[in-house]
Nucleic acid binder design. Structure first.
Lengths: 342, 342
DNA sequence: ACTGATATTGACAGCGCTACCAACCGATTG
DNA sequence: CAATCGGTTGGTAGCGCTGTCAATATCAGT
């Protein structure tokens, strides 16, 4: 004997089958394709499983079936509010389904992302959710070769690996600037942190809008690779002000920076918006209750996660979406901080 | 033949062993206990594995060895900043180790927590990290019966299931109130949201401090079961003010509420701290750069996660900590919002 | 009653890896 | 020189489940 005999109290599929008076394979089918069983056996297996408190062994299932019920999720940050909203959506979508989530943090590095991707694929995930559209060439090849539904989230672009859900950061940013221009602001600054690909596209949107209006000026742009924070918003804003004291408005690539800029205005006794208009990005919860309320660009983060989860599940069940690319859009929410008084 | 034969290009341990000229079991040992191999074979297996690009099949490993290398993490919320910091710590601690994380969201429900716990244990996790010390009696029984390291995080209490890391919310809250009392404030309000067990203990700390000072007054307490938000901070504060207009200071169970209260003061043209002192809890990044800077109670969330991860790994490697309960402490950070002018 | 088609069920043989034990090896010891 | 020993290696037999296909039961139609 190679190892000590299995303890009798262990409940395997065999035990359930025995109690139900069917073969193990029939019991197995009950858990996978119950509609293939006759009503009688279905009831018998079900009650036997319940009575014994049977819990399937996922490792055995994965080994025998050569696939898992794990959906891999690759996101660049665990602390950024934006991603926690998305994550919540994904978890909600998969809650109650047979699928579970394997989460990995790419730390905004596409090289690390590639490593993690390989790691995931070694486990033959049922599906994959990855952030953004900027992957390494190798990552892209790997994803194209793999045979499972993949959703790219956070933004949309021309050539999805498989499916895609997000919005245009370029357009959203451009719309924010258009709003400021409509309000009559001309000298509009740009504050950017982290400068990941999506933030970069917001900068592109800013530049396009300003150029179209004949107002583009490189001096009005302040960016850093440092991760974002409220404090950083104040620092960058101070920087901008020293370089271009004449600015009338500022677009911040996220609401944290916007709040920081607003606090900096307060410190300098610059009334917002009378002397300085501010608009943020993401429309986080707090912006509506600050004083003055901060304008922002609303993005549908929870819905993005939720839909991404649903898209993976639907695809796994054979119901591929008619449109592989879903644009969730955005909306500019104009509040006091960027609206000219009449 | 039961199924189509294995495709030859598939790289299993057998292939690696063959190339290295050893038996499969020796190759297997290379990945588990390399120190048990002779130097020669170790090198041969290593280069063979690398050459073939071998990736172990985790399902097979889990099935054969009857355990996994997954550490289950149960947290009550994915969006709360506090938990994202903790999570980041856990991920960082486990990064590069052989262990991976399975995350589940209990949504502040101990019943859901129990369900998720059962689900986890069915997969025989290598370790477990659970939030708080308030589990259902059944959860507790299950955890005590299971044979894997378990760390309870976020707070400390008298009887750990196994290990524990956190701090005393009661003491931290009491210290915040002591600080306000020292500054000479007497009518001190309490703002609480969500009222999960840890927030409840902060209320207890408040009550103890106020009672000791002979200042306790039920009317000064405003709480709600609603999840926290900045906006809610403003609402609760308005509520408190209408019930007890004479208050001089307010303790908020987290920084979001504190920020909301501060904004509400601004809306009412109540100078902070001259007319109203405010102190929050957690010392999130933004509190130091608000205007005025908000006092808060610093908690070591990232370290908590990081240590919890390390404790699990160490325990798995047989190095159990000398002290099963780790108190990470806290510190009251007094800033302008709660300091009386000289 | 018989045929053919369809719904159910079961037997078999692994999936890729590791636990257990036995065997082997060279070195050390009495 | 035999006995002993610790370190290293290999053989065997599964872990619990499911893919494949064949077998059987069921049923409508003639």
């Amino acid at each position: 004997m190679a190892r000590k005999p299995t303890k009798p109290e262990k409940i395997r599929l065999t035990e359930v089958a025995k109690l139900a008076g069917v073969s193990p394979i029939t019991a197995s089918r009950f858990f996978r394709t119950p509609e293939a069983l006759s009503a009688g056996k279905r009831v018998r297996v079900e009650s036997a499983a319940r009575e014994l408190g049977y819990v399937p062994n996922l490792a055995a299932r994965a080994l025998a079936s050569q696939r898992t019920e794990v959906i891999g999720v690759l996101i660049p940050s665990l602390t950024n509010n934006v991603f926690s909203d998305v994550l919540r959506g994904i978890y909600d979508a998969l809650d109650g389904s047979r699928y579970s989530i394997q989460l990995a943090n790419t730390r905004y590095s596409i090289l690390l992302e590639e490593r993690l991707l390989r790691l995931f694929l070694a486990q033959k995930p049922a599906g994959l959710i990855v952030t953004g559209i900027n992957q390494t060439a190798d990552s892209r090849k790997i994803m194209e070769a793999v045979d499972c539904p993949i959703v790219q989230i956070m933004e949309i672009g021309p050539s999805p690996v498989d499916m895609m859900i997000g919005f245009s950061h370029f357009d959203a940013s451009k719309a924010a600037i258009s709003h400021l221009l409509e309000q009559g602001y001309r000298r509009i600054g740009f504050l950017g942190a982290r400068m990941d690909p999506r933030v970069q596209r917001r900068l592109d949107g800013y530049q396009a809008a300003m150029t179209e209006a004949g107002l583009f000026d490189q001096r009005l742009i302040v960016t850093t690779a440092v991760p974002t924070s409220v404090t950083l918003g104040g620092t960058l804003f101070a920087d901008l002000l020293s370089k271009a004291p004449e600015i009338e408005a500022v677009f911040c690539v996220n609401d944290d920076l916007a709040l920081g800029a607003m606090f900096e205005c307060k410190r300098r006794h610059m009334p917002v918006p009378d002397q300085m208009a501010i608009i943020g990005f993401n429309d986080l919860e707090f912006v509506s209750s600050s004083v003055p309320p901060l304008s922002s660009v609303r993005t549908n983060r929870y819905e993005m996660g939720r839909n991404a989860g649903t898209m993976v599940i639907e695809a796994l069940e054979g119901r591929r979406p008619a449109q592989p690319v879903v644009d969730l859009g955005f909306s500019v929410i104009a509040r006091q901080s960027s609206v000219r008084k009449p």
